Amino acid sequence: MRRRTFIKAAGASGVSALLAGCTGSGTDSTTTEQSGGSTNTTTQGTTTGGNKPTLTVGTYGSFVDAPSTSPGPWLKEEFEAEFDATLEWQTPDSGVNHYIERSLRNVESGADLYVGLDSQMLVRIDTKLDSELFTSTSDLSRRDDVNEELEFDPKERAIPYDTGYISLVYNESYGDGGFTAPETFDGLLDSEYSGALLAQNPTSSATGQAFLLHTIDAKGEDGYLDYWAELKENDVRVLGNWEDSYTAYSNEEAPIVVSYSTDQVYAAESGEDMAKHQIRFLNDQGYANPEGMAAFADAANPELASEFMDFMLRPEVQAEIATRNVAFPATTTAELPDDFAKYAHEPPEAVTFSYDRLKDNLSDWTDAWAQEFASK
Protein backbone atom coordinates (compact mmCIF):
# COMPACT_ATOMS: atom_id res chain seq x y z
CA MET A 1 0.00 0.00 0.00
CA ARG A 2 1.16 3.49 -0.91
CA ARG A 3 2.63 5.31 2.11
CA ARG A 4 4.55 8.27 0.66
CA THR A 5 1.83 10.87 1.14
CA PHE A 6 1.44 9.97 4.79
CA ILE A 7 5.17 9.97 5.52
CA LYS A 8 5.58 13.37 3.90
CA ALA A 9 2.81 14.83 6.04
CA ALA A 10 3.72 13.13 9.34
CA GLY A 11 4.72 15.61 12.01
CA ALA A 12 4.87 16.09 15.74
CA SER A 13 1.11 15.92 16.11
CA GLY A 14 0.68 12.90 13.82
CA VAL A 15 -1.68 12.45 10.91
CA SER A 16 -5.14 10.97 10.61
CA ALA A 17 -5.42 9.05 7.36
CA LEU A 18 -8.78 9.64 5.72
CA LEU A 19 -10.00 7.78 2.66
CA ALA A 20 -12.66 9.33 0.45
CA GLY A 21 -15.54 6.89 -0.07
CA CYS A 22 -17.18 6.50 -3.45
CA THR A 23 -20.00 4.03 -3.94
CA GLY A 24 -22.44 3.13 -6.65
CA SER A 25 -25.60 1.09 -6.70
CA GLY A 26 -26.04 -0.20 -10.21
CA THR A 27 -25.90 0.37 -13.92
CA ASP A 28 -26.33 3.81 -15.54
CA SER A 29 -26.85 5.62 -12.25
CA THR A 30 -25.19 8.30 -10.19
CA THR A 31 -25.00 7.80 -6.44
CA THR A 32 -24.17 10.49 -3.90
CA GLU A 33 -23.32 9.26 -0.43
CA GLN A 34 -22.30 10.92 2.80
CA SER A 35 -19.04 9.49 4.15
CA GLY A 36 -17.00 10.89 7.01
CA GLY A 37 -18.78 14.24 6.74
CA SER A 38 -18.06 14.67 3.04
CA THR A 39 -20.18 14.11 -0.04
CA ASN A 40 -18.76 11.81 -2.69
CA THR A 41 -20.24 11.24 -6.12
CA THR A 42 -19.36 8.53 -8.58
CA THR A 43 -21.03 7.56 -11.84
CA GLN A 44 -21.68 3.91 -12.57
CA GLY A 45 -22.60 2.42 -15.88
CA THR A 46 -21.55 0.36 -18.84
CA THR A 47 -21.20 3.40 -21.11
CA THR A 48 -20.37 7.08 -20.95
CA GLY A 49 -20.78 9.65 -23.65
CA GLY A 50 -23.13 7.39 -25.58
CA ASN A 51 -20.93 4.50 -26.71
CA LYS A 52 -17.73 4.53 -24.68
CA PRO A 53 -17.76 1.80 -21.99
CA THR A 54 -16.86 2.62 -18.39
CA LEU A 55 -14.60 0.34 -16.37
CA THR A 56 -15.33 0.76 -12.66
CA VAL A 57 -12.46 -0.30 -10.40
CA GLY A 58 -12.62 -0.50 -6.62
CA THR A 59 -9.44 0.04 -4.62
CA TYR A 60 -8.02 1.57 -1.43
CA GLY A 61 -7.71 5.33 -1.14
CA SER A 62 -3.95 5.76 -1.22
CA PHE A 63 -3.78 3.91 -4.55
CA VAL A 64 -5.34 6.98 -6.20
CA ASP A 65 -5.35 9.98 -3.85
CA ALA A 66 -1.90 11.45 -4.55
CA PRO A 67 -1.97 12.31 -8.28
CA SER A 68 1.79 12.88 -8.60
CA THR A 69 2.84 9.65 -6.90
CA SER A 70 -0.03 7.16 -6.58
CA PRO A 71 -0.44 4.62 -9.41
CA GLY A 72 -4.16 5.27 -9.92
CA PRO A 73 -4.16 8.57 -11.86
CA TRP A 74 -1.28 7.41 -14.07
CA LEU A 75 -3.02 4.09 -14.81
CA LYS A 76 -6.24 5.89 -15.69
CA GLU A 77 -4.47 8.24 -18.11
CA GLU A 78 -2.47 5.47 -19.80
CA PHE A 79 -5.38 3.03 -20.04
CA GLU A 80 -7.78 5.58 -21.46
CA ALA A 81 -5.17 6.73 -23.98
CA GLU A 82 -4.93 3.23 -25.44
CA PHE A 83 -8.39 1.75 -24.90
CA ASP A 84 -11.64 3.27 -26.05
CA ALA A 85 -13.02 3.32 -22.51
CA THR A 86 -13.34 5.45 -19.39
CA LEU A 87 -11.81 4.25 -16.14
CA GLU A 88 -13.59 5.23 -12.91
CA TRP A 89 -12.04 4.56 -9.49
CA GLN A 90 -14.07 3.72 -6.39
CA THR A 91 -12.45 4.11 -2.96
CA PRO A 92 -15.02 3.16 -0.29
CA ASP A 93 -13.95 3.86 3.29
CA SER A 94 -14.29 0.21 4.27
CA GLY A 95 -12.36 -1.14 1.28
CA VAL A 96 -13.32 -4.63 0.17
CA ASN A 97 -15.71 -4.90 3.15
CA HIS A 98 -17.95 -2.49 1.26
CA TYR A 99 -18.46 -5.08 -1.47
CA ILE A 100 -18.86 -7.92 1.03
CA GLU A 101 -21.70 -6.01 2.70
CA ARG A 102 -23.37 -5.32 -0.64
CA SER A 103 -23.24 -9.02 -1.48
CA LEU A 104 -24.72 -9.92 1.91
CA ARG A 105 -27.63 -7.57 1.11
CA ASN A 106 -28.02 -9.15 -2.36
CA VAL A 107 -27.02 -5.83 -3.97
CA GLU A 108 -24.85 -5.75 -7.09
CA SER A 109 -21.22 -4.88 -6.49
CA GLY A 110 -21.41 -1.75 -8.66
CA ALA A 111 -17.85 -2.32 -9.93
CA ASP A 112 -16.05 -4.46 -12.49
CA LEU A 113 -12.96 -5.42 -10.50
CA TYR A 114 -11.09 -4.74 -7.28
CA VAL A 115 -7.41 -3.80 -6.99
CA GLY A 116 -5.73 -4.33 -3.62
CA LEU A 117 -6.68 -7.82 -2.43
CA ASP A 118 -4.49 -9.99 -0.22
CA SER A 119 -4.86 -13.53 1.07
CA GLN A 120 -6.31 -12.38 4.39
CA MET A 121 -9.06 -10.50 2.55
CA LEU A 122 -9.89 -13.56 0.49
CA VAL A 123 -10.19 -15.60 3.68
CA ARG A 124 -12.60 -13.00 5.07
CA ILE A 125 -14.63 -13.00 1.85
CA ASP A 126 -14.90 -16.78 1.70
CA THR A 127 -15.79 -16.98 5.39
CA LYS A 128 -18.60 -14.45 5.14
CA LEU A 129 -20.10 -15.23 1.73
CA ASP A 130 -21.70 -18.40 0.39
CA SER A 131 -21.49 -17.23 -3.23
CA GLU A 132 -18.41 -16.21 -5.20
CA LEU A 133 -17.72 -12.47 -5.12
CA PHE A 134 -15.03 -12.78 -7.81
CA THR A 135 -14.55 -14.86 -10.93
CA SER A 136 -11.52 -16.72 -12.32
CA THR A 137 -8.59 -14.90 -13.96
CA SER A 138 -7.02 -18.08 -15.34
CA ASP A 139 -7.50 -16.97 -18.97
CA LEU A 140 -5.41 -13.80 -18.74
CA SER A 141 -2.75 -13.75 -21.46
CA ARG A 142 -0.02 -12.47 -19.10
CA ARG A 143 -0.76 -14.69 -16.12
CA ASP A 144 2.34 -16.81 -16.76
CA ASP A 145 4.50 -13.68 -16.25
CA VAL A 146 3.58 -13.59 -12.55
CA ASN A 147 6.14 -14.94 -10.10
CA GLU A 148 4.53 -18.20 -9.00
CA GLU A 149 5.91 -17.76 -5.46
CA LEU A 150 3.57 -14.77 -5.05
CA GLU A 151 0.39 -16.60 -6.08
CA PHE A 152 -1.94 -16.65 -3.09
CA ASP A 153 -5.37 -17.71 -4.39
CA PRO A 154 -5.77 -21.44 -5.09
CA LYS A 155 -9.06 -20.67 -6.90
CA GLU A 156 -7.22 -18.35 -9.33
CA ARG A 157 -9.58 -15.42 -8.74
CA ALA A 158 -6.98 -12.92 -7.52
CA ILE A 159 -3.80 -12.37 -9.50
CA PRO A 160 -0.85 -10.54 -7.89
CA TYR A 161 0.25 -7.19 -9.30
CA ASP A 162 2.83 -6.17 -6.67
CA THR A 163 4.23 -7.25 -3.32
CA GLY A 164 5.73 -5.75 -0.19
CA TYR A 165 7.89 -7.28 2.52
CA ILE A 166 7.32 -6.55 6.20
CA SER A 167 10.56 -5.79 8.04
CA LEU A 168 11.91 -3.64 10.84
CA VAL A 169 12.92 -0.06 10.14
CA TYR A 170 15.31 1.45 12.66
CA ASN A 171 16.99 4.74 13.49
CA GLU A 172 20.74 4.32 13.55
CA SER A 173 21.20 7.84 14.99
CA TYR A 174 18.80 7.30 17.91
CA GLY A 175 20.05 8.43 21.31
CA ASP A 176 23.78 8.99 21.25
CA GLY A 177 24.06 7.37 17.80
CA GLY A 178 25.33 3.98 16.75
CA PHE A 179 22.01 2.25 17.45
CA THR A 180 21.40 -1.02 15.62
CA ALA A 181 18.41 -3.33 15.57
CA PRO A 182 18.67 -6.99 16.63
CA GLU A 183 19.16 -9.62 13.95
CA THR A 184 16.71 -12.20 15.32
CA PHE A 185 13.30 -12.43 16.94
CA ASP A 186 14.98 -13.57 20.15
CA GLY A 187 17.21 -10.51 20.03
CA LEU A 188 14.16 -8.27 20.38
CA LEU A 189 13.70 -9.70 23.87
CA ASP A 190 17.09 -8.48 25.12
CA SER A 191 16.93 -5.86 27.84
CA GLU A 192 18.83 -3.35 25.70
CA TYR A 193 15.73 -3.21 23.45
CA SER A 194 13.28 -2.56 26.26
CA GLY A 195 10.69 -0.12 24.93
CA ALA A 196 12.44 0.05 21.56
CA LEU A 197 9.82 -1.57 19.32
CA LEU A 198 6.69 0.02 17.84
CA ALA A 199 4.30 -2.55 16.36
CA GLN A 200 0.68 -2.55 15.17
CA ASN A 201 -2.47 -4.29 16.34
CA PRO A 202 -2.89 -7.41 14.15
CA THR A 203 -6.68 -7.17 14.43
CA SER A 204 -6.78 -3.73 12.82
CA SER A 205 -3.60 -3.39 10.75
CA ALA A 206 -2.27 -5.27 7.70
CA THR A 207 1.34 -4.72 8.78
CA GLY A 208 0.48 -5.76 12.32
CA GLN A 209 -1.17 -8.93 11.10
CA ALA A 210 1.80 -9.75 8.85
CA PHE A 211 4.21 -9.28 11.77
CA LEU A 212 2.04 -11.53 13.95
CA LEU A 213 2.05 -14.20 11.23
CA HIS A 214 5.82 -13.95 10.97
CA THR A 215 6.12 -14.55 14.74
CA ILE A 216 3.86 -17.60 14.34
CA ASP A 217 6.12 -18.90 11.60
CA ALA A 218 9.20 -18.27 13.76
CA LYS A 219 7.84 -19.55 17.09
CA GLY A 220 5.10 -21.97 16.06
CA GLU A 221 1.42 -22.07 16.89
CA ASP A 222 2.22 -23.31 20.38
CA GLY A 223 4.88 -20.70 21.08
CA TYR A 224 3.86 -17.38 19.54
CA LEU A 225 1.68 -16.23 22.45
CA ASP A 226 4.52 -16.91 24.87
CA TYR A 227 6.81 -14.90 22.60
CA TRP A 228 4.38 -11.98 22.60
CA ALA A 229 4.14 -12.19 26.38
CA GLU A 230 7.91 -11.75 26.47
CA LEU A 231 7.70 -8.84 24.02
CA LYS A 232 5.15 -7.25 26.33
CA GLU A 233 7.47 -7.71 29.31
CA ASN A 234 10.11 -5.94 27.24
CA ASP A 235 7.71 -3.00 26.80
CA VAL A 236 6.74 -3.42 23.14
CA ARG A 237 4.30 -0.66 22.21
CA VAL A 238 1.38 -1.85 20.06
CA LEU A 239 -0.56 0.92 18.31
CA GLY A 240 -3.69 0.71 16.22
CA ASN A 241 -2.31 0.94 12.70
CA TRP A 242 0.75 1.65 10.59
CA GLU A 243 0.10 5.40 10.43
CA ASP A 244 -0.02 5.67 14.24
CA SER A 245 3.17 3.72 14.75
CA TYR A 246 5.12 5.42 11.97
CA THR A 247 4.14 8.85 13.31
CA ALA A 248 5.48 7.83 16.70
CA TYR A 249 8.65 6.52 15.05
CA SER A 250 9.09 9.71 13.02
CA ASN A 251 8.77 11.68 16.26
CA GLU A 252 11.59 9.51 17.71
CA GLU A 253 9.40 8.03 20.44
CA ALA A 254 11.18 4.71 19.80
CA PRO A 255 14.04 3.59 17.53
CA ILE A 256 12.39 0.59 15.80
CA VAL A 257 9.09 0.24 13.95
CA VAL A 258 7.44 -2.63 12.07
CA SER A 259 7.16 -1.35 8.51
CA TYR A 260 8.19 -2.13 4.94
CA SER A 261 11.54 -2.98 3.38
CA THR A 262 11.04 -0.30 0.72
CA ASP A 263 11.19 2.46 3.34
CA GLN A 264 14.50 3.80 2.02
CA VAL A 265 13.01 4.48 -1.42
CA TYR A 266 10.92 7.36 -0.16
CA ALA A 267 13.64 8.51 2.21
CA ALA A 268 16.11 8.79 -0.67
CA GLU A 269 13.63 10.63 -2.88
CA SER A 270 12.89 13.10 -0.08
CA GLY A 271 16.52 13.69 0.82
CA GLU A 272 16.00 12.39 4.34
CA ASP A 273 18.76 11.18 6.65
CA MET A 274 19.23 7.55 5.63
CA ALA A 275 20.54 6.73 9.12
CA LYS A 276 16.91 7.03 10.27
CA HIS A 277 15.69 4.54 7.68
CA GLN A 278 17.78 1.40 8.14
CA ILE A 279 16.25 -1.99 7.28
CA ARG A 280 16.46 -5.18 9.33
CA PHE A 281 15.12 -8.57 8.29
CA LEU A 282 14.70 -10.62 11.47
CA ASN A 283 16.11 -14.13 11.05
CA ASP A 284 17.10 -12.97 7.52
CA GLN A 285 13.43 -13.17 6.53
CA GLY A 286 10.69 -10.81 5.41
CA TYR A 287 6.98 -11.55 5.45
CA ALA A 288 5.67 -11.27 1.88
CA ASN A 289 2.29 -9.62 1.48
CA PRO A 290 1.41 -9.58 -2.26
CA GLU A 291 -1.48 -7.47 -3.49
CA GLY A 292 -3.81 -8.82 -6.13
CA MET A 293 -6.69 -7.88 -8.39
CA ALA A 294 -9.82 -9.78 -9.32
CA ALA A 295 -12.91 -9.27 -11.47
CA PHE A 296 -16.30 -9.24 -9.78
CA ALA A 297 -18.57 -12.11 -10.73
CA ASP A 298 -21.32 -9.62 -11.63
CA ALA A 299 -19.05 -7.25 -13.59
CA ALA A 300 -20.90 -5.20 -16.21
CA ASN A 301 -17.80 -5.23 -18.45
CA PRO A 302 -15.94 -8.51 -17.83
CA GLU A 303 -13.94 -8.41 -21.08
CA LEU A 304 -12.75 -4.87 -20.37
CA ALA A 305 -11.84 -5.94 -16.84
CA SER A 306 -9.64 -8.72 -18.28
CA GLU A 307 -8.00 -6.26 -20.67
CA PHE A 308 -7.22 -3.95 -17.76
CA MET A 309 -5.67 -6.75 -15.69
CA ASP A 310 -3.48 -7.81 -18.63
CA PHE A 311 -2.54 -4.15 -19.03
CA MET A 312 -1.52 -4.04 -15.34
CA LEU A 313 0.84 -6.99 -15.92
CA ARG A 314 2.80 -5.45 -18.78
CA PRO A 315 6.51 -5.04 -17.93
CA GLU A 316 6.54 -1.25 -18.26
CA VAL A 317 3.31 -0.88 -16.28
CA GLN A 318 4.55 -3.23 -13.57
CA ALA A 319 7.68 -1.11 -13.17
CA GLU A 320 5.63 2.08 -12.94
CA ILE A 321 3.23 0.62 -10.37
CA ALA A 322 6.12 -0.63 -8.26
CA THR A 323 7.88 2.74 -8.35
CA ARG A 324 4.78 4.77 -7.54
CA ASN A 325 3.39 2.33 -4.96
CA VAL A 326 6.86 1.78 -3.43
CA ALA A 327 6.56 -1.99 -3.77
CA PHE A 328 8.04 -4.81 -5.82
CA PRO A 329 6.58 -6.02 -9.15
CA ALA A 330 4.65 -9.26 -9.19
CA THR A 331 5.97 -10.34 -12.57
CA THR A 332 9.36 -11.66 -13.61
CA THR A 333 9.46 -9.42 -16.68
CA ALA A 334 9.53 -5.92 -15.13
CA GLU A 335 12.75 -3.90 -14.99
CA LEU A 336 13.04 -1.43 -12.11
CA PRO A 337 14.89 1.91 -12.33
CA ASP A 338 18.40 1.76 -10.87
CA ASP A 339 17.65 4.25 -8.07
CA PHE A 340 14.61 2.27 -6.98
CA ALA A 341 16.42 -1.06 -7.09
CA LYS A 342 19.23 0.43 -4.97
CA TYR A 343 16.96 1.32 -2.05
CA ALA A 344 14.21 -1.33 -2.26
CA HIS A 345 15.44 -4.26 -0.18
CA GLU A 346 14.36 -7.86 -0.73
CA PRO A 347 14.89 -10.34 2.12
CA PRO A 348 17.25 -13.31 1.75
CA GLU A 349 14.18 -15.46 2.40
CA ALA A 350 10.51 -14.64 1.94
CA VAL A 351 7.99 -16.03 4.43
CA THR A 352 4.25 -16.26 3.91
CA PHE A 353 1.30 -18.49 4.82
CA SER A 354 -0.82 -20.18 2.18
CA TYR A 355 -4.47 -19.33 1.71
CA ASP A 356 -5.50 -22.77 2.99
CA ARG A 357 -3.53 -22.40 6.21
CA LEU A 358 -4.89 -18.92 6.81
CA LYS A 359 -8.45 -20.02 6.07
CA ASP A 360 -8.24 -22.73 8.70
CA ASN A 361 -6.39 -20.74 11.36
CA LEU A 362 -6.26 -16.95 10.92
CA SER A 363 -9.27 -16.02 13.02
CA ASP A 364 -8.21 -18.38 15.81
CA TRP A 365 -4.69 -16.91 15.86
CA THR A 366 -5.81 -13.29 15.90
CA ASP A 367 -8.61 -13.95 18.40
CA ALA A 368 -6.17 -15.66 20.75
CA TRP A 369 -3.75 -12.73 20.44
CA ALA A 370 -6.53 -10.21 21.10
CA GLN A 371 -7.76 -12.12 24.13
CA GLU A 372 -4.30 -12.07 25.65
CA PHE A 373 -3.02 -8.64 24.69
CA ALA A 374 -5.54 -6.27 23.05
CA SER A 375 -7.19 -4.97 26.22
CA LYS A 376 -4.40 -5.44 28.74
Results as ranks from 00 to 15, higher is better:
R2H: 13
G11F: 02
G14M: 14
T23R: 15
T27S: 14
T27I: 12
D28S: 10
T30S: 03
T31H: 15
Q34G: 14
T42E: 13
K52Y: 00
L55P: 00
D65F: 10
W74K: 09
F79G: 05
E88K: 15
D93K: 12
Y99I: 04
S103D: 07
S103W: 02
S103K: 14
R105I: 05
E108A: 14
E108D: 11
L113M: 00
D118N: 12
R124A: 13
L140A: 02
S141Y: 07
D145I: 04
N147H: 01
E156D: 10
E156S: 11
T163I: 06
N171Q: 13
S191H: 08
G195Y: 05
G195F: 05
L197W: 00
L197C: 00
T207C: 02
Q209M: 04
F211K: 03
D217I: 10
K219M: 01
K219E: 01
D235P: 00
R237V: 03
Y246G: 07
N251E: 12
E253V: 04
I256T: 04
D273Y: 13
I279L: 04
I279C: 03
A295Y: 01
F296S: 00
A297D: 04
P302Y: 08
E307I: 01
D339Q: 10
A341Q: 11
E349L: 08
L362Y: 12
K376F: 08
